[in-house]
Design a protein around this nucleic acid. Sequence first.
DNA 1: GCGACAG
DNA 2: ATCTTGTCGC
Length: 232
Amino acid sequence: MGIDSIKKKFMNIQQNLAGKIELKNNFGMKDIKLVAGVDLGYWDQDGKHFAVCCIVVVDFHSREVKEKVWSSGEITVPYIPGFLAFRELPLVMEAKAKLVSDPDIYMFDGNGYLHYTHMGIATHASFHLEKPTIGIAKSYLKIKNTEFIMPENTVGAYTDIVINNEVYGRVLRTRKDVKPVFVSCGNWIELDTAMEITMSFINGESRLPVPVRLADLETHVMREELSENGNV
DNA sequence: GCGACAG
DNA sequence: ATCTTGTCGC
C-alpha cells in the first residue's frame, strides 16, 4: 500500500468527520474543573520507531496536578503533514483509557481547526474523546499560501488567521519576547474561549499553557526511562 | 511538475 | 519529533 492510497483513505475519514464540527461552547467556564494536556515523545530502537503519549490532568482552579498517565508502543504510521492524528491518536486513546478522572477539556500539542480540512489532531481527537478540545501549535502550518500576521510584542496580543473570510485560528503572544503560539478550536468550543483558557494557563515558565507544557516534560522523562529498559 | 510541510 | 554548544538574561 503506497503513501498515496494511505492519504486517500485518511482524507475520506477526515471529510466525514469535518461535517460534524461544532464551534460553539457546550459548557460554561464555571463548569471547567479538570483540564488535560496531551503530548508525545519519540525515539528509535532496533530500527523501529517508538513513542510515548503522556496526559497530565490539572485542576483549572487550584492548578494542582491531579493525574498523570502514559502509554507507549511502536509507531508504524508515518508522519504526513495534515495527517498527524492518524499517527498519534492510537496512543492518545490508549493513555486516555488509563485515566481515572474525567477531564472536562483536552489541550493538544498541534492544530485543531487550523488545518487544510479543519481536521487537525485536536479536532479529530474530540470525536474519540467526546470532549471539547483545543489545539496549541508551536509552529505555523501554512494553508492556501496564507501567511500569518505577527502580533505585537505584548503579552495577550493576537492576530486572527483568516482564509476565504473564515477564521481558522489565532496567533497568540503568550509571553513577551518569545515566539507566539497558534491557537485553534478543536471542537465544541469557541476560539475566544480557547484563547481565554490558554492564556489563563501561562505561568511565565513557558510560552505553552501548563497542561501541555507538563505533558511535554513528562514525555521526555518517560522516553529516557522506556528507551533504556526496553519498551513497555 | 515543484514546493511546502503541525509533530 | 530528534540531533546539540554556547550564550544572553532574569
